[in-house]
């Protein structure tokens, strides 16, 4: 495993920071061309794993480009990740599991928990540093109020 914990963690944390800042171009720079993104959750009501968002890199880029045209929830989201494990994957990749908490802050400055879950990431080493090839944002929280136009 050539990828070091600190470098991997830096990339994971940068995804949070850049998405919090709505720096969508900077966010996309952290993904390899073959990247795929999912938001998933398990429903105990229907006893099924659910996919709530699924995009390749181009699809995610188009989604983010369209975000400013939407009527959106007021305020901002703040993502807090903690890297829990970094394990060897296939073909020189690493599998990274992080805990994630997302808070929503409304325009009056009041913050509330929006969601908790885990990032299940796969990263590959590149000349520009570790880049993600997969992210599954698996949510424990299923009650999300009015939801979000942004990824987690």
């Amino acid at each position: 495993m050539s990828l070091k914990w600190n470098a991997v963690a830096q990339t994971v944390y940068q995804t949070c920071l850049r998405l919090d800042q709505e720096d969508f171009d900077g966010y996309l720079e952290l993904f390899a061309p073959e990247f795929h993104y999912w938001i998933t959750a398990y429903s105990p009501e229907i006893r099924k794993e659910m996919i709530w968002l699924s995009h390749d890199r181009d699809g995610l880029a188009a989604l983010l480009e369209n975000v400013p045209d939407h009527v959106r929830r007021l305020g901002s989201l703040h993502r807090h990740a903690t890297v829990y494990t970094v394990e060897p994957g296939e073909n020189g990749t690493v599998r990274v599991t992080s805990s994630i908490q997302v808070t929503h802050t409304d325009p009056d400055g009041s913050s509330r928990l929006f969601a908790v879950g885990h990032y299940h990431d796969v990263l590959v080493d590149t000349a520009d540093g570790p880049r993600l090839t997969e992210r599954n944002a698996k949510l424990e929280t299923r009650e999300l109020g009015i939801g979000s136009h942004l990824p987690i």
Binding site: I39, L53, N66, H70, R72, R73, G145, I146, G147, H149
Partner: peptide, 14 residues
């Protein structure tokens, strides 16, 4: 649709 769809969060906001 769904919590990360393009329309449902807008309808809910409205």
């Amino acid at each position: 649709w769904g919590p990360f769809g393009r329309n449902v969060p807008e309808d809910a906001f409205a």
